[in-house]
Structures are given as C-alpha cells and as structure tokens.
C-alpha cells in the first residue's frame, strides 16, 4: 500500500488529496447520504409533512410485484449479456492466441465496438432490426419468422441483450487474449509433449489458468449490464413493450425523472448502492488475491 520509502507527513499530502476528496464529498458522499436519508422517509402527497418510517419503504418496495419482477428481469438480462459476450470473446481470443500471424490485425478489427457509446450501439441494432425495413428483421420475415420487437417482449429482450453483448466483446476479447498470452509458452509445449491435443490443452491448461481473468470479467460484465447499458434500453425499447425490458437502473430513471417520485426512486437508488458495494467488495477480494501471485 504505502511505499517503503516515502515522504514524511506535512501539509502537502492533504493538499494533494483535497481536490478528489472535495469532489467525492460533494458529488458522492453527500448525494448518497441524501438518498439514504430520503429512503427512510415518507412525504405526504402535498409535500408538506415528512415522517420517518425506518425501512417501511423498502418493505413496501419488495412487496411490490412489479419491482420484484424488474429485479429478477435485471438479473436474467445481466447474466445473459455476460454469458453471451464472454463466450463469443473467449472463442475469438482462443483462436487469435492459436494463430501465429495476424493477431494484431484481428485485435485492431475487434477493438472498435469498445469505443462505441451504448446508445449508439442501441441505435445501430435498432436499425438492423427495425420491424418494417431492418435488414435482419425483413430477412427473418422472409424465412417465415415474424419480427417486431416493438410489440413482442421476448424479441425486445433478445435485441437489447444482443446489442449490449456486442459492445462488450472487445473489452472481454482484449482481456482474454492478454491472459492467454501471459501463459508461459513452455507450459503449453510441455502439455503438447504430454500428448494433449489442442482442444484438450485449451480446456485442461489454458482455461484453468485464465480463471482469474474470467472471474474478473464476469463481475465487470455484470456491472456493465446493470449500469452502463441504460442508453441501449432507452433508445431501443424504452423499457417496453409492457415493461419487458425494464431494468433496475431504467426504473430508477423512469420513477425519478418521468414519474417524479423522488422518494420511491431514492429507495431504489439505495438498493442499487448496496448491490454495487457488495460487488465492489467481491471484486476487491479478487484484486487482493491477484496481487499475491
């Protein structure tokens, strides 16, 4: 943590951390504590009286069938995005690691989607699947499959998952490839001498050795799907049809800024914070373990 060789205390370190600490306090600590405070209050309809109600708001929220459904839907959505994106990038990285020539070119071509904003990714895929004219949707209609994600909830969910996973392929690919290339060549050669076929080598040597990377990416992908794909959902489906693609973050936004229910929305914010802190701790444990290598 601290360098063995370091400077003695003075006013300087306080001045150095001050900008970040002030911003953190004003734009993070204060709002977060406000959210927590508000989540413990109820306000009557005319905005006059507030009452401290402890965890009543939370209990009420989890009694709400609609919220629980959104919660479960978000978990499903995140898991699917992570699974789809991770498996595609794992295959591509394994191939890129195998070929001798062209790894650099493949990487350059695969890196693009990382730079594309989620909302733009959403727009791209929405265009491809646009019910009346989209290239893929019309092709599907031709082979007899009716596509209209504006009406069909399952199709809508499928579309946002594809768009979200597509954008994350680059990131996962880079990490998988770096992880695989960090494995000493001699290890793979030893396995080859031990008569392990390429496929067997992958599953018995390479895959186990990149477990830390996979694990790290799993957490990153879930967090990504939870929080960063708001733009995709907002532009592709607006959470619809009939809430079929509404996630927790989307609901916070909808209840808070469209519904103007600030109290209810801060309860949801607090739940999201708890989730994220749990994942942070989880992640940190992982980072600590990495350091020991």
């Amino acid at each position: 943590m601290l360098k063995q060789v370091h400077f003695k205390s003075s006013a300087l370190p306080y001045m150095l951390v001050a900008p970040q600490i002030i911003i953190t306090l004003v734009f993070f600590m204060w709002p977060a504590s406000q959210a927590i405070y508000q989540s413990l209050l109820i306000e009557d309809a005319f905005g006059g009286n507030t009452q401290f109600v402890w965890f009543d708001n939370f209990i009420e929220l989890f009694d709400d069938d609609h919220y629980v459904k959104t919660f479960v839907r978000t978990l499903f959505y995140s898991a699917m995005v992570a699974l789809l994106s991770l498996s595609v990038s794992l295959i591509l990285a394994a191939m890129a690691d195998r070929v001798i020539r062209g790894t650099g070119i493949y990487r350059t071509l695969l890196i693009w989607p990382y730079a594309v904003a989620p909302v733009i990714a959403g727009a791209l895929w929405a265009f491809l699947f646009y019910p009346t004219t989209g290239i893929i949707s019309t092709a599907l209609t031709k082979i007899g499959y009716e596509w209209n994600h504006q009406l069909n909830g399952n199709q809508a969910m499928f579309l946002v998952i594809i768009a979200a996973a597509w954008k994350q392929i680059s990131y996962n690919f880079l990490f998988f490839l770096a992880g695989m290339q960090a494995i000493p060549k001699s290890l793979i050669e030893a396995a080859a001498i031990d008569a392990a076929s390429p496929a067997k080598r992958f599953w018995t040597i390479i895959f186990p050795l990149i477990t830390p990377t996979t694990f790290f990416l799993l957490v990153v992908n879930i967090v990504y799907a939870f929080f960063e794909t708001f733009g995709i959902i907002h532009v592709v489906t607006k959470g619809g049809p009939a809430n079929a693609t509404e996630t927790l973050v989307y609901k916070v936004y909808k209840d808070g800024f469209i519904g103007l229910d600030l109290g209810g929305s801060s309860v949801q914010s607090v739940i999201l914070m708890v989730l994220v802190i749990a994942m942070t701790v989880f992640q940190f444990k992982f980072i600590e373990r990495k350091v020991e290598y």
Binding site: A32, A35, S269
Partner: peptide, 27 residues
C-alpha cells in the same frame, strides 16, 4: 506519503470505485 487519515481517504475514494453515476443519479 505517510500521513494521518491516509487509509481513511483511501477507502473513501475506493468506495466510489465502482459506483457509477447512474446509481446516485437523483440526489
């Protein structure tokens, strides 16, 4: 630097590590 509250500051910053703005958007 070795200074008082070093670890306190570190944790305060660290806790914001994975808290995207989306979570605390309204406040």
């Amino acid at each position: 630097f070795d200074f008082r509250f070093r670890m306190f500051f570190f944790w305060m910053i660290f806790i914001t590590l994975m808290l995207p703005v989306e979570v605390r958007i309204i406040p």
